[in-house]
Design a protein around this nucleic acid. Structure first.
Lengths: 227, 227
DNA sequence: CGGGATGTTGACAAGCCTCAAGACCAGTGG
DNA sequence: CCACTGGTCTTGAGGCTTGTCAACATCCCG
């Protein structure tokens, strides 16, 4: 929860005292004079809490974010991992239904939700973009729902392919998240995730160079396990 | 699949030869001259198929609809049950990601997706309505994802409360769907659903008057099992 | 080098699925 | 009116996958 080295300004909640007005927000803020601000969070730092007013919409510039909710039984459900370029925190209501935390040191760009909706009120293209972004979240939720019916190995295989697609460089991926994060994302325990990864390693489907440095050696076999 | 008594015109795919232009589409078609047409399907009749072009958006007038996809292993995932008043078949893309079938004899009202999007292109309120409807679907998917982490009993309890809220009249609900449908919706087998219902009956939490006629006698206990 | 966090592996238990048999119910035809 | 039939639902027995608990290994960082 506390890493004493602070790479940048650190207030728990943004209230961002105007930082750097910057580049287009996923091709969004180019439309109108949306003010985008940058902000940096350290690992495990909260970006926003569940049920908080949704004041901003975010885009990851660098780093990784998890959105999650805590269940009554103490377990945690991770809704999504957001990596460089991803937009998160967009809701059509007024409150966040999931909390968001930086997994590692993360820089985000943010725009006020109100400004965005204001623009959407006059600009049809922006309004359409908001819709398709929410539809994208829906698609992801539906895919996770499908995954939830599958075996542990199928879920892990699917996860690996997703991460391979999203963050592999030179055929190798450096996972930002721990085994527990993966488990809470897939609806498995960290032990089951570890066992699945070990088995894939034993079978030569993947290779490790450190627990979070993974090379996929046989993507086709992973796809065959997959949806 | 085939019930020889046809209550109304029966073509497998709409291509609806203008039937009854009628009342507002969930407060939607009141905005512009959207033409709404009615159509009736018999039980187990397909309304649209997976990956079909999303030509229409539907509202249930009478009856019940299930949307679903078939998995590669032959199992079926039901995404949602749609009852009187519910809108379904709205996607932001061009294809349906789930198929839709009538569970019982069902009348729907439908409007062309193109017309709707056209109106949304000029009418900000309609555009906003499309967004919030998709956001509602997202919320439902997120709730199902949460449920998928819970025990069989918790899922069934949640299902009962949902159906009680949506279709109970005089404290009694007449489920339109069979045990297999419920199982495919909750990610359980029909046997597990049946066992959970029997247990709730034994505990006096609910009462049967026919397998699909259920009275909830202790909603609070169901809520305590629930999310 | 030491210590905490993270990851791996093993043994066991629990919950749910599978398979199977039988009960119930509605519709049909004799 | 009753037997028959197909579909739906219930109930039981056993097995499998995954969760739980525990021990140990590894890594990172001071």
């Amino acid at each position: 929860m506390l890493t004493p080295s602070a790479p940048s300004l650190n207030i728990n909640r943004p209230a961002p005292s105007a930082f750097a007005p910057s580049k287009p927000f996923c091709g969004l803020s180019s439309h109108a004079g949306l003010i985008a601000t940058e902000f940096t969070y350290r690992n495990d730092e909260e970006i926003y809490g569940k049920d908080e007013p949704a004041e901003y919409v975010y885009q990851v510039i660098r780093g990784a974010v998890r959105t999650y909710k805590l269940l009554s039984d103490g377990s945690r459900q991770i809704g999504a991992f957001h990596l460089s370029g991803d937009v998160f925190g967009l809701v059509s209501g007024t409150k966040h239904r999931l909390a968001a935390e930086a997994i590692i040191d993360t820089t985000v760009r943010l725009v006020r939700r109100r400004s965005l909706e204001q623009v959407a009120g006059t600009n049809v293209q922006v309004a359409h973009k908001l819709w398709t972004m929410t539809a994208g979240d829906l698609k992801h939720a539906e895919e996770m729902l499908l995954l939830s019916r599958k075996s542990a190995m199928e879920r892990v295989a699917n996860f690996l392919l997703e991460m391979d697609r999203r963050l592999a460089v030179a055929g190798m991926m450096a996972l930002p998240m721990c085994r527990r994060d993966i488990g809470d994302y897939l609806g498995l325990t960290l032990e089951t995730v570890s066992r699945a990864l070990s088995q894939l390693n034993d079978e030569g489907v993947l290779g490790f160079s450190g627990a979070r440095q993974i090379v996929l050696r046989n993507r086709q076999r992973l796809r065959n396990m997959d949806i």
